[in-house]
Amino acid sequence: MSTTSTVVDALAAAAAAAPLVPAAVPLGAVPATGAPPADALAVVAGVVGPVSAELAVVLGPQVAHALAEGAGGAALDPAVALRPALQAAAATLGDGVLEPARVTTAGLVTGPGSQVVALEGVDGTYAWVVVRERPGVPPQAATPSLPSQRGASLRALYDVELTLTAEIGRARLPLRQVLDLTPGTVLELDRAAGGPADVVVNGRLIARGEVVVVDEDFAVRITEIVSAPDAV
């Protein structure tokens, strides 16, 4: 891939992510004049598709402070809070699957082959978006079909009912606060507003999605299937 196409992709990805990065002012995407601090917090996720790459949002001091303050003083999980920004950036690369986000440091996501774009506000740099292509990632091979005997055995289980739960967040409270709950009490959850809901089947996380309304009923649109190692 040429340097020119990589730069254009990085700018487009950063521009798409900019409105979804927590900031007190509007942010614009401009080519970075230098690398972000190596010890700055970064949220990174891979994209697997026609264009396979690693996308990262590196937090500047203002964004890191905003997440630490959270809502009502409760800190927000950076991987949850910045996933919408990563999803928007991933959409500019075409069809693909965004892997689960993880938190690391800028020094581990910047390096040879990476393109860095600064997200600038009126008073300085708030964050950076890093795009690094994964060269030579082959399309996944077709999954071999199951033997007919095994397939027949699985079909016998198709009508077994499972309990599916959509979870938008959790909170831990001491017993005294639980006993003091009354109608109108507001509970702060461990998710940012607009963050994905967990889809759980019989206690096991299988997917994440966004809450929508269908015919005046709540529903969940699946945005990510969680692989077995991440289903914790």
Rank of each mutant, 00 (worst) to 15 (best):
E216Q: 12
L154I: 15
T185N: 09
P174I: 10
P135N: 02
V116S: 07
D215N: 14
D215R: 15
T185L: 07
L164H: 07
Y126T: 06
D180M: 13
S114C: 07
E216T: 14
T163P: 15
V51K: 06
T182G: 06
L173V: 13
V30A: 09
P174Y: 13
T4G: 01
L86Q: 04
A141M: 08
V160M: 07
P84H: 12
P229H: 13
A219F: 00
P229E: 13
E167C: 12
T33E: 14
R221S: 14
T105H: 09
A18V: 13
D77M: 04
Y126D: 15
E99G: 06
L187C: 08
L108C: 00
A88N: 08
A91P: 02
T110M: 00
E224P: 01
A219C: 05
P229Y: 02
A13H: 12
A66I: 15
R83F: 07
V220Q: 02
H65L: 14
V226W: 01
S227F: 11
A156R: 15
V232I: 02
R176G: 05
V212W: 00
D9Y: 01
L55N: 09
V7G: 01
G94N: 06
L181R: 01
L154T: 03
G60F: 05
E224M: 13
V122C: 00
P84D: 05
L59H: 11
V117L: 08
A81S: 11
E69S: 10
P147Q: 09
A32L: 04
R204W: 04
D230V: 08
A14V: 03
G203C: 10
V220K: 05
A66E: 13
L173F: 09
L146N: 03
A228N: 07
Q115G: 01
A18Y: 12
V201Y: 04
A85E: 12
E120F: 00
V201G: 07
A193S: 10
V232G: 14
